[in-house]
């Protein structure tokens, strides 16, 4: 905000304090809520890994559902296999490989980043970069087309007299007592 004794400056400072008070109260309540996110110690690490892994493998017979989601018999059998292999000490990647060998690459929820399938990963970031560049160029060109002077009506600008009389009338119309937005 501007320096100097403008009304808005004063206003901003006072309301800033009030905002802070309110915010402190709200924050106290939010901290209590945040505490709900705090603990994850009950679940053994191996089981956490199993859950994470289950979310990346699809149940081959239930369209669109991961092992973690599905209640199909096959899914629960596959979950058991995951648990077993983790207990044997195998890595996440090798367990995924195991299922890919059986059921093909479509068993992975996340498409592999190899071969032609890598396209699925490459296109979005490229598109995002292109969109950002396009956005920048469009905004710049719109900015150029933008009006420089306030009184733009090149053919027939407002004369000083017109300006004064119109501005006065608009202000009196705005001062309609039924409605003042700023209060």
């Amino acid at each position: 905000m501007n320096s100097g004794p403008s009304p808005s400056h004063d206003r901003g400072r006072q309301s800033g304090h009030a905002a802070f008070r309110w915010y402190a109260r709200a924050a106290a309540a939010l901290i209590c809520l945040a505490a709900a996110c705090a603990s994850q110690d009950d679940v053994p690490p191996l089981e956490q890994r199993a859950q994470a892994l289950n979310r990346t493998i699809m149940c081959p017979v239930c369209p669109g559902e991961s092992l973690d989601q599905s209640q199909h018999v096959l899914a629960s059998q596959m979950r058991a296999v995951v648990d077993e292999k983790l207990a044997e000490g195998r890595s996440d990647e090798s367990i995924r490989e195991f299922f890919v060998e059986r059921y093909g690459p479509s068993v992975l929820m996340e498409p592999p980043g190899r071969g032609a399938t890598a396209l699925v990963w490459i296109v979005p970031p490229l598109g995002a970069v292109a969109a950002a560049a396009g956005l920048f160029l469009v905004l710049r060109s719109m900015r150029r087309a933008g009006p420089a002077a306030p009184n733009r009506s090149p053919a027939n600008p407002l004369s000083d007299r017109e300006r004064e009389s119109y501005f006065r009338r608009i202000e009196s119309a705005m001062a309609d007592p039924g409605r003042d937005e700023r209060g």
Binding site: M1, M174, E181
Partner: peptide, 15 residues
């Protein structure tokens, strides 16, 4: 105009 006044009043707008 109304929005300008409102935004100025709530302090989103510099003089």
């Amino acid at each position: 105009l109304r929005t300008t006044e409102l935004e100025w009043a709530v302090g989103n707008l510099a003089e």
